[in-house]
Design a protein around this nucleic acid. Sequence first.
DNA 1: CGGCATCCAGTAGGATACTG
DNA 2: CAGTATCCTACTGGATGCCG
Lengths: 114, 114
Amino acid sequence: MRKENSTNTLNKQQIDRDCGMSYTLNAIGGRWKPAILFRLTRGKMRYSELRDSIANVTERMLVLQLRELEKDGLIKRIVYAEVPPRVEYELTDKGNSLRPILRSLSDWGIKNRI
Amino acid sequence: MRKENSTNTLNKQQIDRDCGMSYTLNAIGGRWKPAILFRLTRGKMRYSELRDSIANVTERMLVLQLRELEKDGLIKRIVYAEVPPRVEYELTDKGNSLRPILRSLSDWGIKNRI
DNA sequence: CGGCATCCAGTAGGATACTG
DNA sequence: CAGTATCCTACTGGATGCCG
């Protein structure tokens, strides 16, 4: 840990920028979060639909990432009191506001990977 | 590992999307990469300037993340044959093309963190 | 059906000291 | 000035099995 730059007048704005980006990347940056979010932009989905549409994900990881997305307020978990049980996930307004960002991340990646 | 969904006609596009997002998030998603990239959007910077403007980063982590950004073709490392040595970093064209994405990530984060 | 519990491996990231 | 080298921790993600 070194001394911080106290003379750079742009520092506070930069820190805001850093924090903003960190917050966003933390919200969407999990191993399976982009896949989940992108599928939900097409509409409500059941747990089993998500599980079957995302290749190679384990149930443990799927649930963990769903819980984080829920905690961060990006998705809503809807439990139907039925037998057999049914659970659906859908984007919240906050989650929906990510749409353009998800698209641009995807577009940039498709264009720039070799 | 479970069976994959072979009936979903959207699957190939989804996989492209997933890969695109993963590629982008991998490129910019390191602990210090956003901070580095954002500073370089303001122009060329020396190693010591980066180090001093990013609070709490260790030299080891700074160098590691710079090397990855360089390997991914987002930044260029310019060594001047002087004594004392001088090294500057600047965005490549590929790095510059990230500007709008970095901005939207930052803006979304600033708006949505509590 | 939609999970949770347990255990485990790999790696991202960090502290500290040293160098061409 | 601009890095390496070494060692270490913690967290992410994975395999497997059980449950309401």
